[in-house]
Write a protein that binds this DNA or RNA. Structure first.
Lengths: 259, 259
DNA sequence: CGTCTGGTTGATACGACTCAAATTTGGTGG
DNA sequence: CCACCAAATTTGAGTCGTATCAACCAGACG
């Protein structure tokens, strides 16, 4: 059975850590989980496309490690990053129901992803209500994040927009235990940020300088530090409600990053 | 049993038109369905809020007739419309899984909505896989639309943005049989459009004039005409793939508006 | 008939873009 | 370990798209 290797990690998790973790799988992966899953996962080099608009992949891809971005392009080349995918996110839950991808997914860093066959998904969702629930949760939260991005692009100034983006990423990383105190890895280039914020990289550069000048962030060598997340949130009009962190699965994350 | 009046419309639909329509319910309502449902639905006056950010309503609201908009606001009053809800859409599928609304929903026109208790939803989704599937479909398509709005706000010019918005609304209306040839009702004010496009109403006004001058639209007295949807789509860089109209449920719509 | 909301027009201001070049960083091979 | 190259970041000057502010007009409504 070729697909066994795909099922295994779930089984493994289940016996080791109980069904609570199975439910949380679709939400966020703790580093323990990441290590296990990485054994059956595929490696994608940085800056390579994982899936392209129009495709209808056979497998659903679960991010195990690394950063990816979802993006859409216009015929004349204009490019918009519409979301960032972090470990624990599904890259393409859509194609599980819809016919084709309406956007592409590109690797920002070197990636490891687990391929899950559709039949496995069927099996998982139908036999495990908690997993199905978790998938719903992921989809609805992604939807909420996308709405916030709409607000971000439509109403916030360039300065607020970049601040908001940084705060969101930091908080998302923190909930999956990928921060170290007030620091985290930050592999995005200013060009990535520009494409996500609907700005030019030149202007992003200037806004980052202002944020630094205001003591809200420091960012160098792919490393982000946010000395006072509260201040950054205030400056970028950040209301965390849209991340829906008060979800029942949250207590799992609480112990990941106490700081 | 208080909730009986809520169940009834589904039962009614089921016996009259078969389970195909039940499955399509969550997708799009044909006018037949709308008429039936309107008997058990509640009326909301135009320009009144249906749900506010932070609330956790007991019922899920299904749009039966009229237009609504989802919007988010910033503390200083800036307002962004993040989506339009049309008949057949759920207003707040999110609160069925998540804890609280992260945005508000306001009535654009007089509205009629059907209140569905959570228990009814549970029952429907667990006993009827096709309904569950339909809910997935709705959620994922909304997600796709939200991504397209992100692209719209981030990359398109004001002119393209307004054109895109009009084209999208027209096409969505057409799939639910609410167009008449190349015309449709259009109750949005230029202020609504501005809040949706991240522009000022003054600038929206000028873009509408340009679109009219270019023969792409005519819009007066809450009535929109698009003489050549193909031309409008071209001018606004509109790629309809994100609406996922090739879904299996689509054939239901096909007969609604042959034109 | 006045009031109000929505639509239209014009003049001016500013935030973000464009273009261009210099500088720094990171990776690669000799 | 250094030389080299490509990619990313930084800086400056000039331009443009959209916002702002301020009237004015038209239709809806009580």
């Amino acid at each position: 059975m070729q697909s066994l290797s795909v099922v295994k990690p779930f089984k493994l998790l289940e016996s080791k850590a109980g069904s609570k973790v199975v439910a949380a799988l679709a939400l966020r992966l703790e580093s323990f989980t990441r290590q296990r899953l990485s054994r059956v996962s595929r490696i994608i080099p940085a800056r390579r496309d994982l899936i392209r608009e129009g495709e209808n992949p056979k497998y659903v891809h679960l991010m195990v490690d690394g950063w990816a971005c979802r993006y859409k392009t216009l015929p004349d080349g204009r490019r918009q990053v519409v979301a960032f995918a972090l470990p624990g996110d599904f890259c393409d839950l859509n194609v599980y129901v819809l016919k084709a991808m309406d956007h592409s997914v590109g690797a920002v860093t070197r990636l490891s992803v687990a391929d899950i066959a559709r039949e496995e998904m069927d099996e998982l969702t139908s036999s495990r209500p908690r997993v199905a629930q978790a998938l719903w949760w992921e989809s609805l939260v992604n939807n909420a994040i996308q709405r916030e991005w709409t607000l971000n692009l439509g109403q916030r100034t360039a300065y607020e927009r970049i601040g908001h983006l940084l705060a969101e990423i930091y908080l998302r990383l923190r909930t999956i235990g990928m921060t170290q105190g007030d620091c985290c890895d930050f592999p995005l280039t200013q060009i990535d940020l520009a494409d996500a914020a609907g700005l030019t990289s030149v202007h992003v550069n200037r806004m980052l300088q202002e944020l630094r000048r205001d003591g809200l962030i420091s960012l160098e060598r792919k490393r982000l530090r946010i000395p006072d997340i509260g201040k950054l949130m205030e400056a970028s009009l950040f209301n965390p409600n849209y991340l829906h962190l008060e979800h029942e699965g949250r207590e799992l994350d609480a112990r990941l990053e106490p700081a």
